[in-house]
C-alpha cells in the first residue's frame, strides 16, 4: 500500500525526465532553422556590425524576403523548380502505380525478380551514376536544360513509390478483384475504380515522396545545369546568391527558408501521410 504513491511520483518524475531530454534534443534539432530565421530578418549592416549577441534581432526587417520575391532570377528558379517537380510527380506516379498494380496482382514470368529489382534500384544513390548520366545527358543534347531533370528524377522517385504502392495494393483483399473480374470489369476499371481509391493513403504518401525528392535533390541540377535561366531553386540559391567573397547572409538564409517552405508545409498539413510513407519501406511490402 505504502509503495503506491511513491510509484506514481516515480512515474511522474520519469515523465518529466523524458520531457527534459526531449527538450534538449529539440534545441539541437531546431537551432539551425531558428538561426536561419533570425539571420533572414536582419539587414546586412546588422549582421556585419557584430554588435552583441548574434542570436537577437534588433531591427527586424522583411527586406531580404521582399528582395528575393522581387528578384526575377529567383522567380525563374522557383518556377523551374515547380515545373520540374510537378512533371516529375506526374510521371513517377503514373509509372509506379501501373507497375505496382501489375506486380502486386498479376504474376508473370519474372515478376518476383522485377519486384526485388525495383527495391534494389531504390538503393542506388544519385552519386553512383551521375558521371555516366552526365555523358548521356550530353549526348541527348539536354546539358544545361532544366527538362533533363524530368528525365532523371523519376529514377530516384519511382522505385520507392512503386515499392510503397505494391505494399498498399497487396493489402487489398483478393476476393474483391476476383469478384469484379467475374462481373466483367476490365483491368483498367479494376485499377481506377477499386485499387486507386482504396489505396489513396499510399498514393498520397508516394506523391509526397516524389515531391520531396524532386524539390530538394542537389546533385543532378548542380552537375548538369549552369545558366541562371535553367536553374532550379536549391542550386540557384547556392550559385546565384553566393558569389565572390561578399556573402549576403541575410538573403541567403531567407532564400533557403523560402526554398524549404513547400516541403515543410506539406509535412505540416499531411504529417500522417508523410510518416506513413517514411516508415512504409520497412513495415509494408
Amino acid at each position: 500500500m505504502s509503495s503506491r504513491p511513491s510509484l506514481r511520483s516515480e512515474r511522474r518524475w520519469a515523465l518529466w525526465g523524458s520531457y527534459a531530454a526531449l527538450a534538449l534534443f529539440a534545441v539541437f534539432f531546431l537551432t539551425p532553422p531558428v538561426y536561419m530565421l533570425i539571420t533572414s530578418l536582419k539587414t546586412s549592416a546588422e549582421i556585419g556590425g557584430q554588435a552583441g549577441s548574434p542570436w537577437v534581432v534588433r531591427h527586424p526587417t522583411l527586406q531580404n524576403y521582399l528582395d528575393l520575391i522581387g528578384n526575377p532570377h529567383f522567380r525563374v528558379f522557383f518556377f523551374n523548380s515547380l515545373k520540374v517537380t510537378l512533371c516529375v510527380v506526374a510521371v513517377s506516379m503514373a509509372i509506379s502505380v501501373l507497375a505496382a498494380f501489375s506486380l502486386a496482382r498479376m504474376k508473370f514470368w519474372g515478376s518476383g525478380v522485377l519486384a526485388a529489382g525495383v527495391f534494389l534500384t531504390y538503393l542506388v544513390p544519385d552519386s553512383l551514376l551521375f558521371i555516366p548520366l552526365f555523358q548521356i545527358i550530353g549526348k541527348l543534347g539536354l546539358t544545361n536544360n532544366v527538362w533533363c531533370l524530368v528525365l532523371l528524377f523519376p529514377t530516384l522517385a519511382v522505385p520507392f513509390c512503386t515499392w510503397i504502392m505494391i505494399g498498399y495494393f497487396a493489402s487489398i483483399p483478393k476476393e474483391l478483384d476476383e469478384a469484379a473480374l467475374i462481373d466483367g470489369a476490365s483491368w483498367m476499371q479494376l485499377l481506377f475504380r477499386i485499387f486507386i481509391p482504396v489505396a489513396l493513403p499510399g498514393i498520397i504518401a508516394a506523391t509526397i515522396f516524389a515531391f520531396t525528392i524532386s524539390w530538394g535533390t542537389l546533385l543532378y541540377p548542380l552537375a548538369y545545369l549552369y545558366s541562371s535561366d535553367q536553374m532550379v531553386l536549391t542550386v540557384g540559391i547556392l550559385t546565384e546568391l553566393i558569389r565572390g567573397d561578399v556573402f549576403e547572409w541575410g538573403r541567403i538564409m531567407a532564400g533557403s527558408l523560402l526554398a524549404a517552405m513547400p516541403p515543410v508545409l506539406i509535412y505540416v498539413f499531411l504529417m500522417d501521410y508523410y510518416i506513413a510513407g517514411l516508415t512504409a519501406g520497412a513495415t509494408k511490402g
Binding site: 532553422p33 536561419m36 536549391t234 540559391i237 547556392l238 541567403i252 538564409m253 533557403s256 526554398a259
Partner: peptide
C-alpha cells in the same frame, strides 16, 4: 527541410 538548404544554415 531540403538537406542542401539546412546545410547552408
Amino acid at each position: 527541410i531540403p538537406l542542401a538548404m539546412s546545410t547552408l544554415g
